[in-house]
Design a protein around this nucleic acid. Structure first.
Length: 296
DNA sequence: CGGAGCTCCTGGGGGC
DNA sequence: TGCCCCCAGGAGCTCC
């Protein structure tokens, strides 16, 4: 399940293998993979043909490749330029490989370049992810990404502003961590890992969280993501891989996620799995006790 | 408008 | 062995 560290691994791969190259043509193999491109697959293909990839950017779990502005036209509706935007969703992969490699079973979009180099493929089993060509705002951020907050590894992330907006929310702590408008890049795995490291329960009321606890949870988020990044990301199977198809090793380092019934690495209490938002939360009952009152 | 719940999707795995 | 149901979950959408 790609979260910030996994997406950043992919971004680095794109930076190395795709930036500077010119797209020759693309093939859309599944309409759902381009559903976020409202004008349809043919329009997407037209915009990309001949475009040069300028850089590889990321905010939270969104990736985008700014494109060299084409010769300006009077009717240009994207004065600040366009980018190829990608979200990996649950199971999306961006793979760089030779044209001679056989098509993956869930190949959704193929991008070929004008040079003789490897192609870029968007492969996605569950089709929660997708690609689109979108306009950039004056800050260089894709319009559909405008509502996404900065992520905790962004140097411009404002810890104090985060603490303020967190404490005026009326929700639970984990729900807030998963709200990409407030802080981006965190998904179910890293939310559980960070809460375990910070020794906080997922249902803690955001209004009742102290400044020290906010600092603790932010430090935990950054620590777990930085460690995961160093190990190439988290992977349980072949679903999440870097652009070369290699898996990360961080799954070996998970303290609570997926460890129901196994001892807590701090206190040996058995880790518990509980239903949460129609999904699961993993926690240590001793290190992360339930909040005692409505104030959390 | 904030908050909560629903929905999209596919393949693996467990139960019978 | 085969079938059915559950599970994984990001994020846009809908409803209150």
């Amino acid at each position: 399940m790609p979260e910030l560290p996994e997406v950043e691994v992919v971004r680095r791969g794109l930076e190395r293998w795709v930036v500077g190259r010119t797209i020759r043509q693309i093939e859309v193999h599944h309409p759902r993979a381009v559903r976020r491109h409202p004008q349809g697959p043919e329009h997407l293909a037209r915009l990309l043909a001949g475009a040069r990839v300028v850089s590889a950017q990321r905010r939270g779990k969104y990736l985008w490749l700014p494109l060299e502005p084409s010769a300006s036209r009077p009717d240009d509706d994207a004065p600040a330029g366009r980018a190829l935007l990608a979200h990996l969703g649950m199971s999306g992969q961006l793979l760089v490989g030779a044209a001679t490699e056989p098509d993956q079973p869930h190949l959704r979009v193929r991008i070929e370049f004008a040079d003789a180099g490897p192609q870029l493929r968007f492969v996605d089993q569950r089709t929660f992810g997708g690609v689109a060509v979108v306009a950039l705002d004056l800050a260089g951020v894709p319009l559909p990404v405008g509502h996404i907050g900065r992520d905790p590894l962004d140097p411009q992330f404002d810890d104090r502003a985060f603490a303020r907006s967190l404490r005026v929310r009326t929700t639970g702590l984990k729900r807030a961590l998963l709200d990409q408008r407030l802080i981006s890049g965190i998904g179910n795995i890293y939310a559980d890992e960070a809460l375990w490291r910070a020794r906080l329960h997922y249902a803690r009321r955001t209004q009742g969280v102290t400044q020290a606890e906010v600092s603790r949870v932010l430090a935990a988020v950054r620590a777990v993501m930085t460690e995961a990044l160093r190990q190439g990301g988290t992977s349980f199977d072949a679903l999440y891989v870097d652009v070369n198809g290699s898996s990360g090793y961080f799954s070996r380092s998970l303290a609570v996620y997926g460890r129901a019934g196994q001892p807590c690495l701090r206190c040996a209490t058995l880790i518990r799995r509980e239903p949460f938002m129609n999904r699961s939360s993993y926690r240590c009952p001793t290190c992360q006790p339930p909040p005692r009152s409505a104030h959390g």
